[in-house]
């Protein structure tokens, strides 16, 4: 079984991804990085996890009618990812762009395993994914994340709090238990997949400095240029 995300991709662009539990500050950091890259007149593309319309309806219907099982939940997100990977990640990478992805396959690796699917199974399923050039994991203690999340919004949503797992009837407590399990999966993944760990309790500006430094080094290594010669279209591609 080939897991493409274990080997460097052949495209001229650069793939930068951020991961971490809710409230780790990863989105803020990625947006700041995006601003900076734009300011340098780089061709950048920002993309989020779970943003396509392809299976959104099915996921919504499944959540509403409580039809989703850990397996269908996991496969539907992978389906969506496969579509976005082709259109929103590989295409810009071939065009020599810098793709900034808010969450990536590691989100599925942690969340879906906590929901009960096999660790190896979910990794195999995402075997077609491209390996990021920079994968930043924002590590934060559970209490810090909880504080950030709970002060920022009115109420936790059902699935966000992991209420479907039946860990606790209290959304806040359920969220804490759910995120704690996610966090320990992330620790495993960071080791296994070689994610760069960022101390997400540091001041925002300090984290951004470190992040930019890392990206700067990557950019110095190679200058992204678009692919201009097209290989003959394979007959087997849909």
């Amino acid at each position: 079984m080939i897991r493409k995300f274990e080997k460097s991709h052949p495209y001229p662009g650069l793939l930068i991804i951020v991961e971490g539990i809710d409230g780790s500050g990863k989105t803020t950091q990625l947006q700041l990085l995006h601003r900076w890259l734009e300011g340098m007149n780089r061709r950048v593309f920002l993309t989020e996890w779970n943003s396509s319309r392809l299976v959104n309806e099915a996921i919504k219907r499944g959540k509403k009618k409580n039809l989703l099982t850990p397996t269908t939940f996991s496969i539907l997100h992978a389906t969506d990812f496969a579509d976005r990977l082709a259109h929103l990640i590989i295409a810009p990478l071939k065009a020599g762009m810098i793709v900034c992805a808010d969450r990536y396959i590691y989100t599925a690796f942690s969340r879906d395993v906590v929901r009960g699917v096999g660790r190896e199974w979910v990794r195999d399923m995402y075997g077609f994914a491209v390996k990021p050039d920079i994968a930043m994991y924002f590590r934060v203690p559970i209490e810090v994340s909880l504080e950030r999340i709970l002060s920022g919004r009115a109420a936790l949503k059902f699935h966000e709090a992991g209420m479907d797992l039946g860990l606790s009837d209290d959304p806040t407590e359920s969220f804490r238990l759910f995120q704690t399990r996610i966090l320990s999966e992330y620790e495993l993944i960071a080791q296994e997949c070689g994610l760069t760990v960022m101390d997400a309790t540091l001041p925002i500006t300090r984290q951004q400095e470190i992040f930019r430094q890392l990206v700067q080094e990557k950019l110095a290594e190679h200058d992204p240029k678009p692919i201009v010669s097209v290989r003959r279209r394979s007959r087997t591609n849909v």
Partner: peptide
Amino acid sequence: ELLGKTIDQAKAGHTLNTQTYCLLYAA
């Protein structure tokens, strides 16, 4: 019941790549 018309819509909508196609049916 879960996928409903999603598969038909997806096929009609735009070109599906191989993985997307396979995963839709797997779900």
